[in-house]
Design a protein around this nucleic acid. Structure first.
Lengths: 200, 200, 200, 200
DNA sequence: TGCTAATCGAGACGGTACGTCTAGTCTTTTT
DNA sequence: AAAAAGACTAGACGTACCGTCTCGATTAGCA
């Protein structure tokens, strides 16, 4: 009814109210952290944000869109630049796992991937996002290439893809506590190969 | 699919009716193929199988359990044994992608992974299953190790994990049509390393 | 979730639970009395009856159907039989007005008529119901005809229709407190005519 | 209807824009005709009139007020003056039914009555309006009284009320196609009475 | 042979969430 | 100063599923 008593957010005229948007995004994150993807519903977000459902649907056409914006608001992971490729990659993965483990980012991104399995728009959004990240991660390899640490004909995108795959699967199977030693082992295999003659 | 001759399956006494189980599993697969994970509900399966919902819940306590059994009924992918590790791995991945693409397995497995993001039991089941598959895939590497194609101190589980990650991510992001050349590139990197000195 | 704690109504098998139906009808009446037609919503009824909305929609396809059944559950108005037509009709109207005023029937019937203005099925249901009542009221006139109190060629249905119209309008315009004298005046006009020569 | 030439009406300064008022009333009527009372909402009117909702609320505090003004803009029904009461009344009712049937007036007035069942202000407005009309219709009887066609002690308001009731109920139950013969029968009963001795 | 027990299809139950619609209020911008 | 426009919270709409429950029937195995 919106009667007088409550000091709730109101319209601020014929334009989007940033307070509402903020409240909704915060509520979405909170719901995801507290109830997980299973408990993540537009209703629950609206309830927690004290927002009307249509306000959510007006700005985020799908659960996926909301999830994506929540994820993108998060702080990015540091990409180390130690001058040594192995350290850079291991450090990146260790940071990423910690970030996913210790903030809400992990829950959010997991949910986004899950949502993309049943929602076409989520899949598209995720593909776009992943493309951007792949390029970003690829820079670690490109830098190493520039230093001569990596052969010039190596396709950085393929390597970045492989690293992202490794990270995704650890996220999706609750293995973000993988010991650094295991991660390093994987990175070394990738850098030096696992073939007997290469290893010798 | 399940329907056809039988004019309403009935109880066959105080024991599980295998016809019902069969009809339910077939219906589950069909629903998944036709409506995708988004349209996969116990109601829809029961409707299509002409079964009561409690019959499904009696034998499969969760959507995840049903999905898992559907997946396990599928034909397995051939693991080639050509005597050359690169061919084995590339062949395995190419076969796996084709299998996921051309049968219902892809839909089923995607759904299972998605379900595991919100259902604890699905996560557990998936972890157990993945462990088994990792061991299985690891045998390719172990065989190569026995042939001397792979260094003896290589951890086959880590390599199998990396390959599985690559496959999962392609499944989850609709990239099962990856050209063989790209797959082969990735495999070569893994076998020979990407470091400049290794390549020399 | 229907978890253990509450001793709520449950399904009693694959058939309608009369307890639920009863609870819903009582809740509908209560909501109508307390909040009026303006506050009468399926949601409100479901809440008060502690029933699920689909349970209501399953048995009453529209608000109109629910209203109609609520109205039909009400006690009927006595149709007096004093042997004198004027007394019978006046008595009937006085009883009807009192009944509408003092029970929930008035609210319910008003709502039903209002609903019929926007809902085709309500209109049809109301037409059917009104037909039955018209026949019923017509019997007062038929009895008088048999006694020779009314001319033999009088169309009882037309008279009954006129009386019902009078009642409806008083209901719809909040004039159920019309003094008996006014009602009697109207009835006398109808019985004896208002034309000057007839009155002489 | 309302749209057409004007490429977005604008404010004309610190006073009511008569074009807007006109557009809103026309839109209200059009919505009522096309979608019926069920589809009649302030939103729908605003949309069709290309007006903002607050503009409507500023000038018409409730749906009822808007409905009432729409109804009052309609052309009035002719009240015949043939010199014979029966013809006057029958003619009036026939004209009224035709008017309600063939113009939007019927929809509008039905809606107004329905609205009055849940809106207090609508009920008050309707009561006021009905009072005026009753006086107006009463003049037919007063004229007849002056001619000596009707007994001098007849209460014209009661008769007018009864006729209005008859009209309302036909409107509310979709019986505006009542044959003239039936209407005439009712009018004769009222004029000459239905009692046996009066009829002889 | 007759009783018990478990299973089957069926579908109702109380609920939650969906995505859309409307109510009525608020504020900025425009005239 | 007020009109216009669209955003805002709130909540109802009617539908789809959830997971549970009870029914009546059916049949196997125990008595």
């Amino acid at each position: 009814m919106a009667e007088g008593a409550d000091p709730a957010r109101r319209s601020i005229g014929a334009r989007r109210n940033p307070d509402s948007a903020e409240a909704i995004l915060e509520a979405a994150e909170a719901v995801l952290v507290e109830a997980g993807y299973a408990g993540f519903s537009i209703e629950a977000v609206a309830r927690r944000a004290r927002a009307g459902k249509p306000t959510i649907y007006r700005w985020w056409p799908s659960k996926a869109a909301l999830l994506l914006e929540v994820y993108q608001r998060q702080k990015r992971v540091d990409v180390p630049d130690t001058g040594k490729l192995e350290e850079d990659i291991v450090g990146f993965l260790v940071n990423l796992f910690a970030h996913w483990r210790d903030t809400s980012s992990g829950s959010v991104f997991r949910s986004l991937i899950a949502e993309a399995q049943s929602d076409e728009t989520a899949a598209a959004a995720l593909a776009g996002y992943a493309g951007g990240r792949r390029a970003h991660t690829g820079q670690i390899i490109e830098r190493a290439k520039a230093r001569g640490e990596v052969a010039g004909d190596i396709d950085a995108a393929v390597v970045a893809d492989l690293l992202a795959s490794y990270a995704w699967r650890h996220l999706l199977t609750n293995r973000l506590d993988e010991p650094e030693a295991t991660i390093r082992k994987m990175v070394r295999y990738l850098l030096q190969g696992i073939a007997a003659e290469a290893g010798q």
